[in-house]
């Protein structure tokens, strides 16, 4: 280690970053914990000089709140569905992209476009694709003007149109739309990481496998995937963390009602729950945030533990 003659110099150089971090990261975290344990905390009344008891009241309230369980279920469900699907799809696309030479750059750019596009905008486009524009859909005298491109395709192949996101749509139709949208949105980053990983694998492993007469499938399962496992672990872990923070995608499609017309809050998530409480029940929001943190922490630990066992080199 380099011993400086003037250790205070280092602190001066670090000071701007440290001050900003203290104000905007460290203090909010501490404050969140503080608010979470002050029963019934609300900033408005706090300004008015109200005193709060210290205790687990906020946590109790969160857990007893009827919306909380559905928020948790929605979040978990979306995570469990989208992370594996998007990871596997991204892996396949990355392997294919890596295998072709012509147009590789162009396709890489196309696949990366969603990443640099605003997710609300994408959500609106998706909503339009799944939307049924018309009046009083589901009622007896409905007038459907267009059923949305997805339904058009389904009908073209002889299926019946599905009410994906409009009033009267089923929960599973809503979830399907969300899964498609979230997977599509998550792909670019994963493809980018996995493609980078693939390109950094020494070509000689493939030559060696070829000389040894290895089938394509075995090359994929025994060489590509294991050598890519650190990247896969990274993509899965960040995927889960991102998945637990799912919020804007649902706003993108369903608007800030977080559900189809007539059934608001049906697709609300953990972050949505926190935002809802944020307006005047900061104590409850903080408690929910801590619970979410706990869940993400545990899941990430499990992920790390599993990936340590599986990624071995």
């Amino acid at each position: 280690m380099v011993e400086s003659k003037h250790p205070w110099k280092a602190w001066i150089y670090l000071a701007p970053a440290i001050v900003l971090l203290l104000i905007f990261t460290v203090w909010p975290i501490i404050n969140t914990v503080r608010m979470a344990f002050l029963e019934g905390y609300s900033s408005m009344s706090a300004v008015g000089g109200m005193q709060y008891n210290f205790g687990f009241g906020n946590f109790k309230q969160v857990l007893q709140y009827k919306d909380f369980l559905s928020c948790l279920t929605n979040t978990m469900l979306l995570c469990v569905l989208t992370v594996p699907i998007s990871t596997i799809l991204a892996l396949l696309i990355a392997v294919c992209l890596n295998a072709i030479r012509p147009l590789q750059r162009l396709l890489q750019t196309i696949f990366f476009l969603p990443y640099v596009t605003n997710s609300i905008a994408i959500g609106m486009v998706f909503a339009a694709m799944f939307n049924m524009v018309g009046s009083a859909f589901g009622s007896e005298n409905e007038i459907v003007i267009t059923a949305g491109i997805i339904n058009n395709v389904i009908e073209f192949f002889g299926g019946t149109a599905v009410n994906w996101i409009n009033a009267g749509s089923t929960y599973w139709a809503n979830i399907t739309v969300m899964v498609v949208y979230i997977v599509w949105n998550a792909l670019p980053f994963k493809i980018l990481i996995l493609l980078g990983g693939l390109q950094s694998i020494n070509k000689q492993y493939y030559d060696a496998a070829k000389v040894d007469g290895t089938s394509r499938r075995r090359v994929f399962t025994k060489i590509t995937v294991p050598l890519l496992s650190p990247m896969l672990a990274y993509v899965v872990i960040t995927g889960f963390i991102g998945g637990f923070k799912e919020y804007s995608s649902i706003v993108g499609i369903f608007g800030d009602d977080m559900g189809p017309t007539g059934d608001p809050r049906r697709l609300n998530t953990m972050v949505g729950f926190i935002y809802d409480a944020l307006a005047n029940k900061q104590g409850r929001a903080s408690a929910a945030a801590l619970i979410l943190f706990g869940i993400i922490f545990v899941v990430t630990m499990i992920n790390l533990y599993v990936s340590k066992k599986k990624t071995h080199y």
């Binding site: 020494n202 000689q204 492993y205 060696a208 050598l227 080199y313």
Partner: peptide, 10 residues
Amino acid sequence: VFQNYALYPH
């Protein structure tokens, strides 16, 4: 046998 052996590291 490759110059840098190309042993599968995993």
